[in-house]
Amino acid sequence: MTASSATKTQAARHWRPSALGLGLHRAALEIKLFNRDVLSLVLVLFFPILMLSLFGTVFGDEASIGAGPDGAGGITPAHYYLPGMLALSTILSGFQNLSTYVATERFNGTVKRLAGTPLPAASYFLGKTGQTLYLICAQTVLLLLAARFLFNVPLPSDAGAWLLVGTLMLLSTAAWATTAIAFTALPKSAQSASTLAVLPVLLLSFTSGVYFPFSQLPAWLQSITNIFPLRWTASALRSVFLPGGFEAAEPGGEYNVPVTFLVLGLWAVAGAVLARLAFKWPPQK
């Protein structure tokens, strides 16, 4: 063996792929793939807009929802439902879409194929993070544009409010995303994965103040829903988008944004720990 080939062998033995570079490449690829999946694109990206349009159409564009019992200080249904639909976006992008994708890839050979190459698991998840970020950003922007220009919903004008919205959307999506990865260890087939992934979204969206005011729920149901992030995200977003006086409809008569951050942070961390334990790379059947 010559000196140069010895050096080459030595270099090959210590070769490492770039987790970041490959992660960014995976993200671009995942986004491209997602855009080709028209059904998912419409379901996930436009679902909150569809729901907002539905509420705006069914309940009309009168300022019919008021903070007080007499309906004083009323806002339009589209205005009232905007924070709820934004909160819904976080569970759709972070949980339903991501868990369905990852579970499908566990069963159709994607994860097995990639785990058989030098691709680091971190790059795979960077790719998923990129796709989820793309989704939640697109969803948020589209929803806000629709609210502003289709339904004339007044939006906040100060930077602090938007910083809070951005942080809430990202942290909520992150909390759901780590939970989603852990969740993908549960289903035993791709079909059961997509069915199972819809369940939490369906149950929580009806019990977290997204479709109905949270305070109208019975106390026992409130205390269950209080464990999950969605109710807190919706509440904190209402604190930004709804005019003063609406906090009276919240439990305890206030929005409690610090508790929201605490709950979201706990879910993100617990989800990450569970995901680390539950997700197998390479997958073992």
Binding site: W15, P17, P118
Partner: peptide, 10 residues
Amino acid sequence: PPAFRARIGI
């Protein structure tokens, strides 16, 4: 390690 996976094909 990845250096091993670079030398096999599946």
